[in-house]
Design a protein around this nucleic acid. Structure first.
Lengths: 151, 151
DNA sequence: TATTGTTATACTCTATAACTATA
DNA sequence: TATAGTTATAGAGTATAACAATA
């Protein structure tokens, strides 16, 4: 008979893939922190700056995207602002809101940081286009891709 | 002519896979911290406890495996020890060394924590054995697997 | 009343430097 | 002298609770 779904959660092949994903996650994080440090940024600062380099964002929304308490964002943006990478602007539509926005220098720093994040790009370059397509599709399904039920 | 390796670092398909890996990393971390919190552990405490549940380990070696300074391990083990999950033992071979070891309760907690880390296992169960094999091979090559040059 | 951002507080993680006890 | 573990210190991230300004 065919393998049951429950069995597929604990079989050796699955555990092997779980180990590999753990290794990928550890390495990704390490290289991300390293790249941030090369620009004298902490990981959290780099994530916020990367977000703001795309578009000005209310403090509360930054917290939602980073999945942390809004009170933490105050300090992180304070430190980025002190370095001239970010500025706070009023929101014309709602005077309670403050929009955090990357400055010109902030966008430049964010861009250089993105370019230095070679971890994922570099090893992927060794795969053929076909292999990368397969990898993309499998990862999408793992995350609950476009075809996933309930999305 | 064929696509050059350098181009394969910046083509849309590669960037798409990079995005997906970022999403996997974010979700993995989030669920790991969540699982740790359910046992009233921080992420760092959970990682150390997981390590010690495998075998007693000198303080210095824990730091090397977690890639942090040895002085940090003192506090983390202190807190785990205060909760009875870990104990310090002398090393008969070298009186400078202290072996941190998980207690019976510590091993039990580590085991329950492992079981609750369903993120990777659960979505993988939706893939067939063939797909999981392909995924394993691709991830191995990304990490510089057995066939990688220079290993 | 509810929401936005901030402040105050406490805890943890982190790196650095100096200390102790061994080797 | 070199190494293992610790202590002291300072900066950063985190959650919680309370607050002022605005909606």
């Amino acid at each position: 008979m065919a393998t049951k779904r429950a069995d597929r959660r604990t079989d050796p092949l699955t555990l092997e893939v779980v180990e590999l994903i753990g290794a990928i996650v550890a390495r990704y994080h390490e290289e991300y922190e390293q790249a941030a440090a090369q620009h004298s940024l902490t990981g959290a600062q780099a994530r916020v700056l990367g977000l703001l380099s795309l578009e000005p964002t209310p403090m509360r929304q930054i917290a939602r995207k980073l999945r942390c308490e809004p009170s933490n964002i105050t300090g992180i943006v304070d430190r980025l602002e002190a370095r001239g990478l970010v500025e706070r602007r009023p929101d014309p539509a709602d005077r309670r809101v403050k929009l955090a926005a990357a400055t010109e220098e902030g966008r430049s720093t964010a861009g250089r940081l993105r370019d230095s994040l070679d971890f994922a790009r570099e090893p992927l370059a060794d795969l053929t286009a076909g292999e990368r397509t397969v990898l993309r599709d499998l990862l999408q399904r793992m995350l609950g891709g476009p075809d996933a039920p309930g999305v």
